[in-house]
Nucleic acid binder design. Structure first.
Lengths: 333, 333
DNA sequence: TTGTAAGCGTTATCAC
DNA sequence: GTGATAACGCTTACAA
């Protein structure tokens, strides 16, 4: 059995209260400090976090609730949030809803029951029910990646408009006018932004927007594959395609290989996110990068502030700029 | 403030003890059951897990301690373990040691202090100190991916010998005799197995084992890149290369692209693990797959058994067979 | 500066 | 079947 504060007090010849105070940073006489330190060392005492939690109505854990761990974006977030909050003494609970709105609500309840001190949410459902549940219980919340309509929260997002605008403008500068796009669910915040950027770039250049060039791939590998096939089988195939997330980029490559098309001779490609793919494929892929690490760290920091009760400038939205990497997957026309 | 069991008892006109018993599955009169149910519903009562934990010396959380979340192997494990244990009421804490042995020990202590009910360890350090700490505190432990010398634990591993043997044998059948291998740290359990399989296949075929054909890439992208360059710049370049983990496979592709070599004409490749890469590259990649999902699920199940106190057949080692997928990255000589 | 004691929300032991 | 009560390990008024 591990030793308790009671054992330490006994060993040091002091009361529990004194030991507790010392541990929590209140000042004590030098001699008592020495006695406590010695006792702690001898007994290898470590405070019991559960008891602490019960007393303080805190669990010293925070959760990341996300759609699926199979996306690099999500794992990257987990990693940077963990780096940020574990050093502050918080354990980080990972909770996947497996792209299932009902499960997202169940897991939200699970986390509430576990009394997590804060939640970082990468939303799956767009109706905001999960947010309402969390807010009803006054649990600090930071929403990542998306904004949910009619729900006021702190959030960390990408400048999606720019992430769509820059790459497409780049394609136009290279002489392309038949430019397709693979998008996510049109209801998604990120889709709206990225697609908006695409349209803005075309419009600015006086290029007509064609509906058949806009294909929804649902942000998944399979969806990207199908959407890419649809685009490539059009009567008039686009000469260039902007793929607006990472998983669809993978799917698109599968389709391209299946159709035996050559990049960039047959088709020019701009992808999304700087995960292993970009430099592994040949020729290397031009892509728009989200600063995932910075986004995750910001989420962790902001959540920590809220947990500490600092609600200045609530609700706060932090917008990160994408970075475009210019590689060899675009043909100059 | 959330309602407590005390509130439920008061509302139902019963004692706390009775309510507690009902909640914990003991039988009560039908009328009292109804009263309790009604009170629970009206008050939206959810048991306080922290108090429960304090009382039972349990935290209802388990941890996965792993080197780095940037590997698909690790995230895949997190995902399947979470799927397995969250439904049983356990939260899953993710803890990365960032490929740092000292941090691995610190985080082990962190988890012990958080009183996790069990740990799944994907070891980084090979000295087993982390295992000793965990075992000293009698925390149920399942080790994944590796076996650590002189440390008896439950563990889930791949049949690494077979994972090395089969692909190399396949290369030999295709007429290759100059076959290189990219390995991990030679001290690693997995390296020994996979390299052993490579050597066995060569030996059986009467092919000489050349030291310069065995290059350590440390299981990292950068290491794989460097090791691949070394192999390709040998006086006599191998005609085929077996790359014994996923990250090195990525690194190797970077090197191949850098050297502008064509697969399979210039060089034949067998990779490792069925993550997005295999079918995205062109031509598609022949690879050895670890059944990561099954391995993670087994780890979760076994840990759960141990937590429940079922120590029959301890220590147990579960060995999973690799599956080889034959694609287009091998030239027939 | 230090000690005392109540209480956080449960469960388990004992009476009734 | 049900109720009262001590205990889990800690923090925090309040008292000394």
């Amino acid at each position: 059995m591990a030793s308790t504060i009671r054992d330490v007090a006994a060993r040091a010849g002091l009361s529990i209260g004194t030991v507790s105070k010392y541990i929590n940073g209140y000042s004590v006489k030098e001699t008592t400090q020495a006695a406590i330190e010695a006792a702690i060392k001898e007994l290898d005492y470590h405070p019991n976090n559960i008891a602490k939690g019960l007393r303080n109505a805190k669990s010293f854990s925070i959760a990341i609730l996300l759609p699926m761990l199979d996306s690099n974006f999500c794992t990257s977030m987990v990693s940077s949030i963990e780096s940020c909050l574990l050093p502050k003494g918080y354990s980080v609970i990972v909770c996947e809803c497996h792209n299932n709105a009902k499960m997202e609500l169940q897991k939200t309840q699970f986390l509430i029951d576990r009394m997590v001190d804060g939640i970082v949410l990468i939303p799956y459902s767009l109706d905001g029910k999960q947010i309402e549940m969390i807010q009803k219980h006054n649990i600090p919340l930071v929403v990542l990646d998306q904004k949910i309509k009619n729900h006021e929260t702190d959030c960390i997002v990408l400048d999606n408009m720019l992430a769509g605008y820059e790459p497409v403008k780049h394609l136009i500068e290279f002489g392309h006018t038949d430019i397709g796009i693979l998008t996510g669910n049109p209801e998604h915040y990120t889709t709206k932004g990225r697609l908006g950027g695409y349209k803005k770039a075309l419009t600015e250049a006086g290029i007509e927007i064609k509906d058949e060039y806009i294909q929804c791939g649902d942000y998944t590998i399979d969806g990207g594959y199908d959407a890419m096939l649809r685009l490539c089988r059009l009567q008039k195939r686009p000469t260039a395609i902007f793929i607006s997330n990472y998983d669809m980029t993978i799917g698109a490559y599968l389709a391209i290989n299946y159709l035996n098309l050559k990049i960039p001779d047959d088709i020019s490609i701009v992808g999304f996110d700087n995960f292993p793919l970009a430099n592994v494929v040949y020729p290397s892929l031009t892509f728009a990068e989200q600063p995932t690490d910075a986004m995750g760290k910001d989420a962790g920091k902001l959540l920590y502030e809220r947990i500490k009760g600092n609600y200045s400038n609530y609700p706060k939205t932090i917008v990160h700029k994408p970075v475009i990497y210019y590689k060899d997957s675009i043909r100059c026309i």
